[in-house]
Design a protein around this nucleic acid. Structure first.
Length: 153
DNA sequence: GCCAACGTTGGC
DNA sequence: GCCAACGTTGGC
């Protein structure tokens, strides 16, 4: 399957991940049940990932990545010092899970503003009115379209 | 900084 | 189970 995963570049950018060991990072900090369920129940090793920068001056797809490990409990939920701490989570009954994501390459930025204008992308979950999900599925057609756009730029 | 949209919480 | 209040997301 294919996914789009949002990250704030001030927190973890595509450049950051490319400098990490194995060029990969735990996708910690997701605290939304729908996004959690995608990671826990559906994401498989090898799934394609559009690495999206959000909450920044120019939001958009900034790189290509892949799922490199299926979901495990998100350690930050147990860490009282973490902003992602969840007092209701226990080791025996974890609430939050995260996959590991390996960056493959940085790409020229494909801005959200451009994606909104591409006819083939109009049905993207990302573009749906009021969408706030930080992880959204991407269809095969959308994936192909975006890869073409990235190569063209 | 604003604010629309949505998710979660908690009283009832 | 309802729903008002509140908090968060995230583009602009």
């Amino acid at each position: 399957m294919y996914w789009l995963m949002k990250s704030e570049p001030d927190e973890v950018s595509i450049d950051d991940v490319l400098t990490m060991p194995d060029r990969s990072v735990e996708w910690f900090g997701v605290r939304n049940y729908q996004a959690r369920n995608f990671m826990r129940d559906q994401m498989q090793v090898g799934d394609g990932v559009l690495f999206y920068h959000s909450g920044c001056a120019e939001p958009g797809v900034a790189g290509l990545a892949e799922v490199s490990r299926t979901a495990l409990p998100d350690e930050t939920q147990f860490d009282a010092a973490s902003p992602y701490h969840d007092p209701k989570a226990t080791r025996d009954n974890p609430r939050w899970f995260c996959v590991r994501v390996r960056a493959l390459q940085k790409t020229p930025l494909l801005p959200l503003s451009i994606m909104r204008k591409v006819p083939l992308l109009q049905e993207m979950r990302l573009l749906a009115r009021g969408n706030r999900l930080s992880i959204t599925p991407v269809t095969v057609d959308e994936w192909s379209c975006i890869k073409t756009l990235l190569q063209a730029s």
